[in-house]
Write a protein that binds this DNA or RNA. Structure first.
Length: 367
DNA sequence: CAGTCGTGGAA
DNA sequence: TTTCCAAGACT
C-alpha cells in the first residue's frame, strides 16, 4: 500500500521535526502476561483458565453496556439468583424483568434481554449459539456483545471493541480521527492486535487495561505493558486520545406529574407505552414533557380531583434532555375506582413496580 | 447516520 | 455547578 493517497505529491520528511524512534507493534503476549498478574476479580468472571457460563457472560455484558461495574454488581447478583438460567429468564413475565431492572437505566436493554432469552430458547434449544455471527442475530446483541460472548464464553477469535479498547487503540496509534467516525478505523486496528490463543483473556485484558491503567484522565503509563509501543505516550499526550466530536447541548423539558393518593395510601399509576423513553415502565400519570412546558396541565389530569400544585419540582437528567417535573397532588376517597389504563398501587407494592428513578423521586411527595 | 435511550459517581 | 464518563444497540 502506498504511503500517500496522492502519488504525485509524496510526503517529505519535515526537517524541523526529528524522526520519531520506530516503535515495535504491540505484543498481545505482553498484555496477557500483565493480565495474569493484575486481572480483576469480578462477579461475572470465571477463575483463571476456566470458561464462563455463556448465560452469565451474556447477562453481565448486557448490564455493563454504558454502565459502571459498581452499579451493575447488585443487579447482576439479583438477576442471577432469581433467574439462574436462560430458560428461567425466558419463562419470566416481562413485567418482572422490568421491575428487577428498574433503576439501572436504558430500559430497552431489559426488553431485549428478555426477548433474547426467549429467542435462545425458541431458536437454539436453550443453548447460546457459539459464533459471533449467530450471536449478532439475537435481539440486544450488537457487534461488541457478540464478540465479547464469542471470545469469553466460547474462546472464539473476536474483537470485542468497547470504549476501553477504543481508548487504548486510539492512544497506541495516536488516531487523530474523532469518534464516533473513527470507530471503523479503530476496529480495523483492533483486528491487527488479536492473539492466536487466549481470546477470552485478551478481550478482558484490554478492558482491564482501559479501566485501570489506560484511563480517560491521568493514565498510569508508567505501569503499562505497552508503554514502549504507544504513540500517544511517545508524544507525551495520552489524554489527547481518543479525539471526540463535540456533543449537542442538552435541552430542558417541563411537565406536571399528577400524584393521586387514595385514603389507604395507594397511588394512581399507569404503564408507559412499550417502546421509546422508559418504554414499558411504570409511572405516575403526567402531562407530556416538552420544552416550555404544557400550555394547560389540567387537561392532562387522569381524573377529576381537587389537584393542589405543590411547591416542589423534581429534577432529573436523561441522556439527551433534562426534565423539570412539577408535582400536583390530590387526595382521593377510599373507594375511588381507577380510570381506564390506570391502577392503584399501595406503597407495599412499589418494589414490584417498574418505577424508573425519576418516578421514585416523584413518589417521595406522597406526603 | 445521527439521534434516541438512564443513571449515578467523579473531577 | 457543570461536565464527562461507564463492558452499546437500535432506528
Amino acid at each position: 500500500m502506498p504511503r500517500s493517497a496522492d502519488p504525485a505529491n509524496p510526503p517529505r520528511p519535515d526537517p524541523s521535526r526529528p524522526v520519531p524512534a520506530s516503535r515495535s507493534a504491540p505484543d498481545p503476549g505482553a498484555l496477557l502476561a500483565w493480565y495474569d498478574r493484575h486481572r480483576r476479580r469480578l462477579p461475572w468472571r470465571a477463575e483463571a483458565g476456566v470458561r464462563q457460563d455463556p448465560y452469565r457472560v451474556f447477562l453481565s455484558e448486557i448490564m455493563l453496556q454504558q454502565t459502571n461495574v459498581v452499579t451493575v454488581t447488585p443487579y447482576y447478583a439479583a438477576f442471577l439468583a432469581r433467574w439462574p438460567t436462560v430458560a428461567a429468564l425466558a419463562g419470566a413475565p416481562l413485567e418482572d424483568v422490568l421491575s428487577a431492572w428498574a433503576g439501572l437505566g436504558y430500559y430497552a436493554r431489559a426488553r431485549n434481554l428478555h426477548a433474547c432469552a426467549r429467542a435462545v430458547v425458541e431458536r437454539h434449544g436453550g443453548a447460546f449459539p457459539d459464533t459471533e455471527a449467530a450471536l449478532l442475530e439475537l435481539p440486544g446483541i450488537g457487534p461488541y456483545t457478540a464478540a465479547a460472548i464469542a471470545a469469553i464464553a466460547f474462546e472464539r477469535r473476536a474483537a470485542a471493541v468497547d470504549g476501553n479498547w477504543e481508548r487504548v487503540i486510539a492512544r497506541l496509534f495516536a488516531v487523530e480521527e474523532a469518534l464516533p467516525k473513527a470507530k471503523a478505523r479503530l476496529r480495523a486496528l483492533a483486528l491487527t492486535l488479536l492473539p492466536s490463543s487466549r481470546h477470552g483473556d485478551f478481550a478482558q485484558a484490554m478492558m482491564d487495561l482501559g479501566a485501570t491503567l489506560c484511563t480517560p484522565r491521568k493514565p498510569a503509563c508508567a505501569l503499562c505493558p505497552w508503554r514502549t509501543n504507544c504513540a500517544a505516550h511517545a508524544a507525551g499526550a495520552p489524554e489527547r486520545y481518543p479525539v471526540k466530536a463535540a456533543k449537542a447541548a442538552r435541552p430542558t423539558r417541563q411537565g406536571v406529574a399528577f400524584l393521586a393518593v387514595r385514603a389507604d395510601g395507594a397511588v394512581l399509576v399507569r404503564s408507559r407505552p412499550p417502546r421509546g423513553l422508559l418504554g414499558g415502565m411504570s409511572e405516575v400519570p403526567s402531562t407530556d414533557w416538552i420544552e416550555g412546558g404544557p400550555a394547560d396541565p389540567a387537561l392532562a389530569a387522569p381524573m377529576a380531583l381537587e389537584w393542589q400544585p405543590l411547591n416542589a419540582t423534581v429534577g432529573h437528567v436523561f441522556s439527551h434532555f433534562a426534565l423539570e417535573l412539577a408535582i400536583w397532588r390530590a387526595r382521593a376517597p377510599a373507594v375511588t375506582p381507577a380510570p381506564a389504563g390506570h391502577r392503584w398501587v399501595r406503597p407495599e407494592g412499589f418494589d414490584a413496580e417498574a418505577f424508573p428513578s425519576v418516578m421514585r423521586k416523584v413518589l417521595e411527595y406522597i406526603g
